[in-house]
Design a protein around this nucleic acid. Structure first.
Lengths: 211, 211
DNA sequence: GTCTATAGATTGATAGAC
DNA sequence: GTCTATCAATCTATAGAC
């Protein structure tokens, strides 16, 4: 039997990912976690405190992976006295995400929550999420400017924006895609390797398109 | 003074776009519309009935524009005894959307709501939205298969998916983009022509990337 | 740390006068 | 069609016993 605190985090992660922050009540969370309602406020202070820790618990280590992989790209480029290329920058963002997604059922739920967070209407959740993401975005912009010096910063900004949109949309739709039925009834592949192999060429081609 | 029904629709459209369906109360809607609380249930039966009409009121004519433009692409191609090309198919989706966005303040709110709807956690809203979108997606897939016969259907499906993700993410972020501050403090361009000129080359290059 | 009980506010919906 | 008044349910949060 896991600790109460962890049971609450797991349950909240699961339900926030499925139904969103606003639509998920503390009662639903404690019921699924099989703990007492009051324990949420004891351990996290409030619903906001809970969602803060739900996001932080996974996103801090995930972003550490992303940042390390970005640093590797920079280091490797400068050791060759060349610039990083766009595909490697984008891969440093996407690969850890998709790997996270496929590594366990629990992390799979969190990945859906990340996808949700990109489109989250709630101000509190947005602030938590984007404050954690900002260093990653800044570093990616820095790399993309080096990789594609002929494309203006404004266009690179938008293309990064589009890439993140494509990625987050994909994360949200993996388990529950309303479009799936379009594909001839057959379920399209959603394993980690296939997804990276599909998404990365798409955003790389978009990023490198002539201006 | 507009009719009560229309005032409610406008107010709901505005607030749903800003804060999402779940987080918006009927009281907030009627207060902004300066009408009585009970009038929502008189005119629309329920909150679900209201959101259904909010979406339908704009999305039906918008999708009619999209479908006409798609039909034009098919007609023009067959009159030349050739296949449509991917860029024209994608433009037939994106151009009416962005034009809608820029045509008036009221439609601007609805466009944000469309962006929201792609990521909507609420089952009711999702069902309404995707049932209206399905014919468009099907027609686009048909056109893309003709345009890019060397790319498998599964890959085309995913690339259409990515394109819609990029587009909807952009719609959501136009007025309230948490990433804007990344771009050196300056606000990136968000007028209709600029957006089409940025988004369309991105998704076209991604769609046509060698497999 | 965990529980019961409940406060206090807000929600969607409706009954009934006009 | 529009209003007041209110119901019944639900929500987050907390007080206080154990």
């Amino acid at each position: 039997m896991k600790e109460t605190k962890e049971r609450i985090l797991d349950s909240a992660e699961n339900l926030f990912a499925e139904s969103g922050y606003q639509a998920t009540s503390l009662r639903a969370i404690t019921q699924k976690a099989e703990v007492n309602l009051a324990s949420v406020n004891y351990h996290f202070g409030s619903k906001e405190g809970l969602v803060d820790e739900v996001i932080r618990r996974r996103l801090v280590p995930l972003n550490k992976l992303r940042m390390q992989q970005l640093q590797n790209v920079f280091d490797h480029a400068s050791s060759q006295k060349s610039n990083p290329n766009a595909e490697d920058i984008l891969r440093a963002f996407i690969e850890p995400t998709i790997t996270f997604l496929s590594s366990s059922n629990s992390l799979r739920h969190f990945t859906l929550l990340i996808g949700r967070s990109f489109a989250e209407p709630d101000d509190t959740v947005r602030k938590i999420f984007f404050s954690l993401m900002e260093p990653i975005f800044n570093t990616m912009m820095k790399g993309l400017k080096l990789a594609l010096p002929n494309i203006t910063e404004e266009v690179l900004f938008w293309r990064l924006h589009f890439s993140l949109g494509a990625t987050s949309h994909t994360l949200r739709c993996i388990d529950n895609c309303p479009m799936t039925q379009l594909f001839n009834g057959k379920d399209p592949a959603t394993d980690a390797e296939s997804l990276i192999g599909l998404l990365l060429p798409f955003v790389t081609a978009g990023m490198e398109a002539p201006q």
